[in-house]
Measured scan of single mutants.
Amino acid sequence: MLYRITVRNADGEKLEIVVEMSEDEVRALAEELRKAGYEVRVEPIPEGEEP
């Protein structure tokens, strides 16, 4: 499935990426980023919607 991941650092800089991963993989990635001090938001992209 496609997911949009938005990551912000302490300075407020934002990075937005689209990935194709399983829900478990995305959850693990988000958890690791949060542990590293980043603010993370994950949104699933519905099938048929443009990323």
Rank of each mutant, 00 (worst) to 15 (best):
residue 1 M to R: 12
residue 1 M to F: 09
residue 1 M to V: 09
residue 1 M to G: 13
residue 1 M to I: 08
residue 1 M to W: 09
residue 1 M to L: 14
residue 1 M to H: 12
residue 2 L to Y: 12
residue 2 L to K: 10
residue 2 L to D: 02
residue 2 L to A: 05
residue 2 L to N: 04
residue 2 L to W: 08
residue 2 L to C: 07
residue 3 Y to Q: 04
residue 3 Y to R: 03
residue 3 Y to K: 01
residue 3 Y to A: 02
residue 3 Y to N: 02
residue 3 Y to L: 03
residue 3 Y to M: 03
residue 4 R to P: 00
residue 4 R to I: 06
residue 4 R to L: 11
residue 4 R to Y: 05
residue 4 R to D: 01
residue 5 I to S: 00
residue 5 I to W: 01
residue 5 I to H: 00
residue 5 I to Q: 00
residue 5 I to R: 00
residue 5 I to L: 08
residue 5 I to T: 00
residue 6 T to R: 04
residue 6 T to W: 08
residue 6 T to A: 03
residue 6 T to Y: 11
residue 7 V to M: 13
residue 7 V to S: 04
residue 7 V to Q: 02
residue 7 V to P: 00
residue 7 V to D: 00
residue 7 V to H: 01
residue 8 R to A: 10
residue 8 R to E: 08
residue 8 R to G: 08
residue 8 R to H: 12
residue 8 R to L: 11
residue 8 R to Y: 11
residue 9 N to D: 05
residue 9 N to I: 09
residue 9 N to M: 14
residue 9 N to V: 08
residue 9 N to R: 14
residue 9 N to Q: 10
residue 10 A to D: 06
residue 10 A to C: 06
residue 10 A to G: 14
residue 10 A to K: 13
residue 10 A to L: 13
residue 11 D to P: 03
residue 11 D to I: 15
residue 11 D to K: 15
residue 11 D to T: 11
residue 11 D to V: 11
residue 11 D to S: 15
residue 12 G to C: 13
residue 12 G to E: 02
residue 12 G to I: 03
residue 12 G to W: 03
residue 12 G to Y: 04
residue 12 G to L: 04
residue 12 G to V: 02
residue 12 G to M: 05
residue 13 E to H: 15
residue 13 E to V: 15
residue 14 K to H: 12
residue 14 K to T: 12
residue 14 K to C: 04
residue 14 K to R: 13
residue 14 K to I: 13
residue 14 K to V: 11
residue 14 K to Y: 13
residue 15 L to R: 15
residue 15 L to S: 08
residue 15 L to N: 10
residue 15 L to Q: 14
residue 15 L to I: 12
residue 15 L to P: 01
residue 16 E to M: 11
residue 16 E to L: 11
residue 16 E to H: 06
residue 16 E to I: 09
residue 16 E to Y: 13
residue 16 E to C: 04
residue 16 E to V: 06
residue 17 I to A: 03
residue 17 I to N: 02
residue 17 I to L: 09
residue 17 I to G: 02
residue 17 I to V: 07
residue 17 I to M: 10
residue 17 I to Q: 03
residue 17 I to K: 03
residue 17 I to H: 03
residue 17 I to D: 01
residue 17 I to C: 04
residue 18 V to L: 10
residue 18 V to N: 03
residue 18 V to I: 11
residue 18 V to Y: 11
residue 18 V to C: 04
residue 19 V to Q: 02
residue 19 V to G: 03
residue 19 V to S: 02
residue 19 V to E: 01
residue 19 V to I: 08
residue 20 E to R: 05
residue 20 E to K: 15
residue 20 E to F: 12
residue 20 E to Q: 15
residue 20 E to A: 09
residue 20 E to N: 15
residue 20 E to C: 02
residue 20 E to H: 11
residue 21 M to H: 02
residue 21 M to G: 04
residue 21 M to V: 05
residue 21 M to A: 05
residue 21 M to L: 14
residue 21 M to Y: 03
residue 21 M to R: 03
residue 22 S to D: 06
residue 22 S to G: 07
residue 22 S to I: 09
residue 22 S to E: 09
residue 22 S to M: 13
residue 22 S to C: 05
residue 23 E to W: 04
residue 23 E to P: 11
residue 23 E to D: 08
residue 23 E to K: 08
residue 23 E to T: 07
residue 23 E to M: 10
residue 23 E to N: 08
residue 24 D to Q: 08
residue 24 D to E: 12
residue 24 D to V: 10
residue 25 E to T: 08
residue 25 E to A: 15
residue 25 E to D: 07
residue 25 E to Q: 12
residue 25 E to V: 05
residue 25 E to N: 13
residue 25 E to W: 06
residue 25 E to I: 05
residue 25 E to G: 14
residue 25 E to H: 09
residue 25 E to Y: 06
residue 26 V to Y: 01
residue 26 V to L: 04
residue 26 V to I: 09
residue 26 V to C: 03
residue 26 V to M: 07
residue 26 V to S: 02
residue 26 V to H: 00
residue 26 V to W: 02
residue 27 R to M: 08
residue 27 R to W: 10
residue 27 R to Q: 09
residue 27 R to E: 12
residue 27 R to C: 12
residue 27 R to N: 11
residue 27 R to I: 11
residue 27 R to T: 11
residue 28 A to M: 10
residue 28 A to P: 01
residue 28 A to G: 09
residue 28 A to W: 09
residue 28 A to R: 09
residue 28 A to N: 11
residue 28 A to C: 02
residue 29 L to F: 15
residue 29 L to Q: 02
residue 29 L to C: 03
residue 29 L to H: 03
residue 29 L to W: 07
residue 29 L to G: 01
residue 30 A to M: 06
residue 30 A to Q: 05
residue 30 A to D: 02
residue 30 A to Y: 03
residue 30 A to V: 14
residue 30 A to G: 04
residue 30 A to C: 05
residue 31 E to A: 07
residue 31 E to N: 11
residue 31 E to P: 00
residue 31 E to M: 10
residue 31 E to L: 10
residue 31 E to Q: 13
residue 32 E to L: 14
residue 32 E to Y: 13
residue 32 E to G: 07
residue 32 E to N: 14
residue 32 E to P: 01
residue 32 E to H: 15
residue 32 E to Q: 14
residue 32 E to W: 14
residue 33 L to I: 06
residue 33 L to W: 12
residue 33 L to S: 01
residue 33 L to D: 00
residue 33 L to Y: 15
residue 33 L to T: 01
residue 33 L to F: 10
residue 34 R to I: 04
residue 34 R to K: 09
residue 34 R to Y: 04
residue 34 R to F: 07
residue 34 R to G: 05
residue 34 R to A: 06
residue 34 R to S: 06
residue 34 R to C: 06
residue 35 K to Y: 04
residue 35 K to V: 04
residue 35 K to T: 04
residue 35 K to G: 05
residue 35 K to S: 05
residue 36 A to E: 04
residue 36 A to H: 11
residue 36 A to L: 10
residue 36 A to W: 14
residue 36 A to C: 04
residue 36 A to S: 13
residue 36 A to D: 05
residue 36 A to V: 13
residue 37 G to Y: 06
residue 37 G to P: 00
residue 37 G to M: 02
residue 37 G to C: 02
residue 37 G to K: 01
residue 38 Y to Q: 02
residue 38 Y to W: 06
residue 38 Y to I: 02
residue 38 Y to V: 03
residue 38 Y to A: 04
residue 39 E to Y: 07
residue 39 E to S: 10
residue 39 E to A: 05
residue 39 E to W: 07
residue 39 E to K: 05
residue 39 E to D: 10
residue 39 E to R: 06
residue 39 E to T: 12
residue 39 E to M: 07
residue 40 V to E: 00
residue 40 V to S: 01
residue 40 V to W: 01
residue 40 V to Y: 01
residue 41 R to P: 00
residue 41 R to C: 14
residue 41 R to G: 06
residue 41 R to H: 12
residue 41 R to E: 13
residue 42 V to Y: 14
residue 42 V to R: 00
residue 42 V to K: 00
residue 42 V to M: 04
residue 43 E to R: 07
residue 43 E to D: 10
residue 43 E to H: 10
residue 44 P to A: 08
residue 44 P to Q: 11
residue 44 P to G: 07
residue 44 P to S: 08
residue 44 P to R: 06
residue 44 P to E: 08
residue 44 P to V: 15
residue 44 P to W: 08
residue 44 P to N: 11
residue 44 P to H: 13
residue 44 P to M: 09
residue 44 P to L: 06
residue 45 I to E: 05
residue 45 I to H: 07
residue 45 I to P: 03
residue 46 P to A: 12
residue 46 P to W: 10
residue 46 P to G: 15
residue 46 P to K: 14
residue 46 P to Q: 14
residue 46 P to M: 11
residue 47 E to S: 15
residue 47 E to C: 03
residue 47 E to Q: 14
residue 47 E to P: 14
residue 47 E to T: 14
residue 47 E to D: 12
residue 47 E to N: 14
residue 47 E to V: 15
residue 48 G to M: 15
residue 48 G to Y: 09
residue 48 G to E: 06
residue 48 G to N: 15
residue 48 G to S: 14
residue 49 E to S: 11
residue 49 E to C: 07
residue 49 E to I: 14
residue 49 E to T: 08
residue 50 E to D: 11
residue 50 E to W: 11
residue 50 E to Y: 14
residue 50 E to V: 10
residue 50 E to M: 11
residue 50 E to H: 14
residue 50 E to K: 15
residue 51 P to T: 11
residue 51 P to A: 07
residue 51 P to D: 12
